[in-house]
Structures are given as C-alpha cells and as structure tokens.
Design a protein around this nucleic acid. Structure first.
Lengths: 197, 197
DNA sequence: ACCAGAAATTAACAAAGGATAATTAACGCT
DNA sequence: AGCGTTAATTATCCTTTGTTAATTTCTGGT
C-alpha cells in the first residue's frame, strides 16, 4: 500500500516531518482515483475525509435557486481538499466537489487523523501551517473582491494562476470571479483590444 | 497584573483550557487601551502581537491608489485581531488597524506565545479551533461575494450582524461590502420602499 | 474526419453600480 | 445650545454587468 516512492514524495512536500510521523500518517491513508467529470463529494453528504491531491483538479460548486451552477473554488495538485461544511461546520455539504480532470487523491479519515495530529507536535504544527495558508488564500480573495473590478480580478487570476486558467473552462472561471460567463467574454474582448479610443 | 476576575473571564471563553495553561498564557499578556479613532497598527509596520478584544471595535483598512480608504474587515469584542501581513505573510502591514470605539485589548507577543502553544496540546487545539473559525468566516465572505448581489449582501449583513451595523458608519460598511457609500445609500432607499411598481 | 453537444461569443436591452458634485442630515466638541 | 465638520442622501450622467437568445467556435468520442 505504501512504497518508498510515495514516502519520499511526501517527505519533500511536508518539510520537517519525521519519517516515523509520516509513516504513522500514511498507515491511515488510501489512494482514490477519479475520472474527469466524476463527482467526488455529493451534495448533502457528510464526508469526513481530508484528501491531498497528487494529480488533477477539483472544482467545488453549488446550485443557485435559479438552477445554474456557481463555482466557488478550485483545488489542484499538492493542495488539500475536504468538505468544508462537513469538516469545519459539521453540517451536510451544500457543495458538490467534482473532478475536472483525471485525479488521484490520498485520503485520510479526519476522525482518525485528528487524535494523531493532536498528539504529535510536528503534525500539529504542520496542520497549523496549512490552515494559515488556506486562511491567507481566502483573505486574499476577499481583498480582491473589495479592491478590484471584475476585469482586474480576471487579470489578477491570469497573472497569478496562468496554468489553472488554461486548464479550466471560462464558464467556471467566470462564476469563480463573481461574474457571468457572458461578462467574462466581454472582458476578454476588451483586454484583447488594447488601443481602442 | 492578573486578577481572578480576569481568569474566570477567559476560562469561560476558552473552554477546555486548564487553569495552569491559562496562567502560563496570561503571564505573557498585557492590557492595551485605545480611544475611539486611535490607530492600533500602522501601515508598513511589523507588529508581531496577537490581541484578544475585550471591548470595543477595530476596523482594518487600506488606501487605494486613488487615495480613498477601503475597509476590509471589522473585529469586535471576544474576537482576536492581529496584523495578517506581519503574522501570516511575514511582511510589513499593507493595512491600517484603527479603533472605531474606545477599545480594550489583551495582547500577546506572537513569538513568545508560539513555543508555548506548540508544547501545550490544549493550546494547540485551541489555536486550531480559532483558525478554523476564522477560515469559515473568510470563506463565508467569499461565498457572499460570489452568490449574492450587493443588495443581498447588505441584507445578509444586517441579518447576521445587526449590532455591528448599528455601531459602524455606513461608509465603512459600504466598502466592506465591495460597493461605494453612494450605492449603499441607494440600496437602503430601495429596501425602505418595498412596494414600488 | 465527422458530428453532436457543449462552450464561447455576440447582440440587444434592462438594471445596477461608479463618479462627481450639490444638498441635507447628523454628529462631536467646547 | 450652537457651530463646524463629517456623514448620508440625492441628482445626473456614464460605464459596466445581468439577462436572454441567437450564432459561431470548439471539443470529445466514435
């Protein structure tokens, strides 16, 4: 279930983690594969697992009362993903998590991982770092919504995540930016025509 | 510096914290008072303290290139506050933190608190809880920007934080919602005139 | 390579917000 | 209580986005 390639893979990613701590954690983990288009976490489910994305891309979306989809978040390789509603708010997931590409995950049951993390200072510190990184990311988005126009937000996204922009259909990027696909199309046109008086 | 009133005050707030852990933490803490209007953290400073707000209200704001202020966050009693740039991103603060009311803080030097938290499982868990709460709050805001119109965001704010709405001038609420004060005024008028055909 | 379905673009119109400025209301200070 | 400052509202005009629908382009699967 666990080979030396895996171990070195994770050790390079989680710096400061001792081999024994890593092995204890890996004993709880298992691999899950998703094909492009597969649903990873269904709406209203209570999914108590935390996953590390080895490869691929997952979008978290929601259905508006009107019926159309709104993408709230994208996560890709080397990032963690979990049902926020289930793990943080302890409620059934309002969101749907779908793989946009063939995806490979390393999953851990959160209820099993938690006591291990509590009792391992290194793991506590590591979890803390990841939470801080996620918090910084989320606050950065709030800042963008407040400080930038939709057009500026799109330019920022292209600048900061050019690879992701190319891997995800525009209609998902649009709602992620808080605008409609039609509006994003117009923005792209404006940008492509720089000298227009 | 530390009396039994203080201790019981914090013990009721930080559930599960033992008295010995609490005292260890309090030894590092000190009280700071701010008058309404005072600047708590200046722009470009590197403020390595984390504060618990006992009383009062603080806004975090930024200056746009155009020169006008944009409020990004409000924090009030029983919440923690710190310079995000300094603590999380380890960079000088782009933001200014200002007390909008007479405010009383309990401050701790983050660099002193960190080793204590790392070595005290209860404190680690507590820190983790606060981080999760902040993360949930921040993601809730992102969700609002994506899912709701400015008018709906204002209504949500009034519904979820009626007390805060009444304590803060509209011009700060407006930029917090990502709109201009003029636009908020129009929204308020629309709401006040329900049956308008 | 083709073809069907999906995505992206374009168009036309309505609705809302941004900018600026003037006016009115509210507030804080002595 | 009065006065000066600040906040909030209102008005006007302009820009942008939302909505709906039609059209074009792209894409994946056979």
């Amino acid at each position: 279930m666990l080979n030396s390639d895996d171990i070195s893979f994770y050790l390079t990613r989680f710096k400061g983690l001792s081999i024994t701590d890593a092995i204890a954690l890996f004993k709880l983990a298992q691999t899950k594969k998703l094909a492009a288009g597969d649903i990873y976490i269904h709406q209203n489910s209570n999914y108590q697992k935390v996953a590390f994305i080895k490869k691929g891309l997952i979008r978290m979306y929601q259905l508006k009362p009107s019926g159309d989809e709104v993408t709230l978040m994208l996560r890709w390789e080397n990032k963690f993903i979990a049902s926020h509603d289930s793990i943080i708010l302890q409620q059934p997931s309002r969101f749907i998590y779908q793989a946009l590409e063939d995806t490979v995950l390393m999953e851990i049951d959160y209820r099993k991982a938690q006591p291990l993390m509590e009792n391992t200072p290194k793991l506590s510190a590591l979890r803390n770092e990841f939470l801080l990184a996620m918090l910084a990311e989320s606050m950065h988005r709030v800042e963008s919504f407040i400080m930038l126009s939709p057009e500026e937000r799109y330019l920022q996204l292209v600048r900061e995540k050019p690879d992701i922009v190319n891997r995800v259909p525009d209609k998902y990027l649009a709602t992620l930016l808080g605008i409609t696909p039609v509006s994003l199309s117009r923005i792209r046109k404006r940008i492509a025509t720089p000298a227009k008086r």
